[in-house]
Design a protein around this nucleic acid. Sequence first.
DNA 1: CATGAATGAGAGTTCATTCAT
DNA 2: GATGAATGAACTCTCATTCAT
Lengths: 198, 198, 198, 198
Amino acid sequence: MSEKSGQKKQYIVDTARGVFVEKGYKNVTMKDIVDACGISRGGLYLYFSNTQELFLEVLGADGAEPGENGEVEELFGENAFASDILALFLKEQKKELLRRKNNLTMAVYEYFFAHKVPKKDNPLKKKFDMAVRIVEKLIEAGVENGEFYCEDAKGAARNIMYVLEGLKIASQTRGITEETVDREILYIMQGLIIETED
Amino acid sequence: MSEKSGQKKQYIVDTARGVFVEKGYKNVTMKDIVDACGISRGGLYLYFSNTQELFLEVLGADGAEPGENGEVEELFGENAFASDILALFLKEQKKELLRRKNNLTMAVYEYFFAHKVPKKDNPLKKKFDMAVRIVEKLIEAGVENGEFYCEDAKGAARNIMYVLEGLKIASQTRGITEETVDREILYIMQGLIIETED
Amino acid sequence: MSEKSGQKKQYIVDTARGVFVEKGYKNVTMKDIVDACGISRGGLYLYFSNTQELFLEVLGADGAEPGENGEVEELFGENAFASDILALFLKEQKKELLRRKNNLTMAVYEYFFAHKVPKKDNPLKKKFDMAVRIVEKLIEAGVENGEFYCEDAKGAARNIMYVLEGLKIASQTRGITEETVDREILYIMQGLIIETED
Amino acid sequence: MSEKSGQKKQYIVDTARGVFVEKGYKNVTMKDIVDACGISRGGLYLYFSNTQELFLEVLGADGAEPGENGEVEELFGENAFASDILALFLKEQKKELLRRKNNLTMAVYEYFFAHKVPKKDNPLKKKFDMAVRIVEKLIEAGVENGEFYCEDAKGAARNIMYVLEGLKIASQTRGITEETVDREILYIMQGLIIETED
DNA sequence: CATGAATGAGAGTTCATTCAT
DNA sequence: GATGAATGAACTCTCATTCAT
């Protein structure tokens, strides 16, 4: 039973994710979920009492996923060039960025705009800080083995992440081209890489 | 007559602005506006047919205001130091950024997320591009008179603006401290200013 | 003043007629009239308090017009053949019948369905009875001078008028072709005309 | 479930019928139905989205009923006198005609005035044509066994039906007495029956 | 007389939420 | 557990009607 019940809950969360991706957060009604899942109204209430509860579950499932940085961390262990890993990291961010659909971004922003969450528990902040730390470490590694020049790795990492966040909201609200993202990434990388004389 | 009528319309727009600031875009109903304005249901419809129409008016009024760059452009003419003007510009952005209340940001983001507007007409893009151009010119001016060192003024300007946009959404969705903003601004300025030997 | 005022009232009635023709009775709102007339809301109320009042005026103006039987009565005096006059009368009715637009029929029906009017004052009844009397006299005249054969002129006249009324409602609610009307008229005339042996 | 649900739908249709009978078509609001049925606002929308949908259902249920011609067709099989069957048919029409209440007539007219339906699908036309065919067959049968004299059975049938339609609208919009209907029916029958010398 | 801004009642419609089965 | 019918609150929008100017 609890097995089966767990399956159904998971099914709802997965399906709901798609709905949030498509309609944002505030726009989604319990009816939307019911319709998308093809279950009964009452059935949904057995698992979630409102969209917020459901959204948080979607968010949790999302965070728990291996996620975008899996590959990056993998490379970490393999002693690859820091610049390559960073480039890969940025490429993944870019992919995520441009995926205007299948993208929970706006729903997340909407949610955290509507429900102010104390900083300590704010998953948005956690995610951001974690990414900063990853990038910071990458830069430090790059500096150590002479690929990068950078006096303030943490500052650079933060700068990079804020740029990415800016690109993200730009992508969602006014649309940006791949070239725009590439240009920004290039600018960032050039600021780090030691120019060898030719 | 048209005078008075115009006044009332303006009153509605002004009042509605506050409602949008407080509740975002999607959450706002015509009833919210009616209640906030203290007018009748039908009275509102005399001026605006729906919240979108009203929001666009609010947006237009917002854009038309002298706005945040007024002071900056003033200084332009006075041959002040480019670094000072830029610092002022960033300070203004910071103020705007941190003003978590009285801030249309999220409503705007919500709106443009829901209503995809072709790039050509997208006011968000226009505003962004304009700001980039201002910053670019500032940097160029600074480079010319030896305050700044920068090989790619446009790239730097864009980087700055994306960082600001990232900070903005961060401010609205997870809250940031003044120190965080200061730190980012400092990082940006240090990247430009020629370090004099001490 | 009263001259001018009378003119305006007439203008409203005339314009309103078109609106009733187009939308029936129940569908018409004071706003429709105001829009059609291009006058102010308050202005309309100066003359009519509601659509019923206005409709009755339209109806009155309609009945007062020389109307469809003018030509017929003219011929009466000229000692024309009764069969010719009757044919003319029926032709006029046909024209009126088929004019699916510019036709107050449905509005009138709607009105008298909604507002039951005592028979004595019912203009619909008056109009019908008058038409019956005209047809009856025509038939009698035709019988007298040997054009028609008919034992019950009044009965025949009533039969004719009810058929016309049936055709009228058919025309408005399901559409009928000119042929259909012609066929019915022919049937009626053949029932009256004495067949000469050939 | 679907049993019960079907019952409720039927209940709504039946109750709505009464409302349409009383108020016509255009005048009826969803609220009227809701009140008449004693159900909730939302409850009605579970079954019908608007008054048109509901009216069409009422109309369908009406048409599907054994209806006024059931008895007539029964007699057909029993080799009764054609004149008797026709008299019965007309009597039934008369009953229907005079039933000023419990009569969907005006609602139907209103509906088909507002919603022009292509002739092919127009149920009003179908019903009319079917009735014409029945009467035509009756007349032919009567002619065959010497009861009637008629050279154009179809023409006579059509004439009869248009008279009935005329009487119907007259009944609804200005009221007619039973005598009026009787008189018209008598006129029709006399036109058909062969007068035996006395 | 004439205007049109303003009001408020009421129609249409959608959904969150409950509950008997 | 699961269903989906039912309810009622809330929202959008339209008009008849009034009234200060």
